[in-house]
Design a protein around this nucleic acid. Structure first.
Length: 263
DNA sequence: ATGGTCGGAAGCCGA
């Protein structure tokens, strides 16, 4: 089984790119973030025609939005709200084999890495604290779990183009890295991508639009993650980040990340 | 130190 996560940055604008992703990657399950479409205008029929009739979605007008698209049935869909906001950042459902799949979009956090000066950064830190407590409280409930998404934090030095230059840049500050580490420990969750691709290797999943030549500058960050429960570790056979997708026509600023699990 | 570019909305906001 192959599972992909992708911050698509508008599912309606990039429906044809989603079709190309299906052709080239052949995933069984696709988790999306930043769909930017209210449920009423979500292109469910077009996605069903791509081979993913089983869909759980949580979208709002203009901002955020998460979804899980699947070739296999999805049961017990649930949305989770955080920080008292109904802002469509977390949805989960269960696959036929009992694996629970979570699609998560953590707040980006704005520009200033100071919660007192920047409410968006305060929101990001609170979101991390809350989802960590929730994850910790549920850790014994379901044995097979996968959590994916745009977590908006690049934890390792090799997850950014310059560790030193990004220490005070939101997404790589020590407090964010520490909170992400606690979130990961709450599962406990395993960083499936770094199980397969050594931590020494530079790895990015996002390149800003604000660059005339993203490929030459290559100032990327690994913001998109796939985490698995320890019970799934023996089944993990592959993990990839599809850098080339950043060069597609009308590209999202994020690229897809996948894992493969053997039966 | 600054500004660069997107998407969705609607005459800016969030990334």
């Amino acid at each position: 089984m192959k599972i992909v996560t992708w911050n698509i940055n508008s599912v309606r604008l990039r429906l044809s790119n989603l079709g190309r992703l299906v052709e080239e990657l052949d995933p069984d399950v696709i988790c999306l973030q930043e769909t930017k479409a209210h449920d009423d205008v979500f292109p469910g029929a077009g996605i069903a025609a791509l081979g993913y009739p089983h869909q759980v979605i949580a979208g709002m007008k203009s901002y955020n939005g998460v979804a899980i698209l699947s070739r296999l049935p999805l049961s017990n869909p649930q949305t989770q709200s955080w920080c008292g906001k109904e802002d469509c950042r977390h949805i989960f459902a269960t696959l036929p084999n009992g694996t629970e799949v979570h699609s998560v979009y953590i707040p980006a956090g704005g520009d200033i890495p100071d919660p007192a000066a920047n409410p968006k950064f305060a929101h990001k830190l609170q979101f991390l604290d809350d989802i960590t407590a929730w994850s910790h409280a549920r850790q014994g409930d379901v044995t097979k779990r996968i959590l994916v998404g745009d977590l908006n934090i690049a934890p390792l030095e090799t997850d950014v183009w310059s560790h030193k230059q990004l220490l005070k840049v939101v997404s790589h500050t020590p407090i964010e890295v520490e909170k992400l580490s606690k979130f990961q420990a709450s599962g406990p969750w395993i960083d499936a991508v770094r199980e397969i691709i050594p931590p020494e290797e530079r790895l990015y999943s996002w390149w800003s639009y604000r660059s005339s030549d993203w490929q030459a500058a290559d100032k990327g960050r690994r913001l998109d993650h796939i985490w698995i429960s320890e019970t799934l570790r023996p089944h993990l056979t592959d993990a990839r980040i599809y850098r080339d997708v950043r060069g597609w026509d009308l590209a999202s600023d994020h690229v897809p990340v996948s894992i493969t699990l053997a039966d």
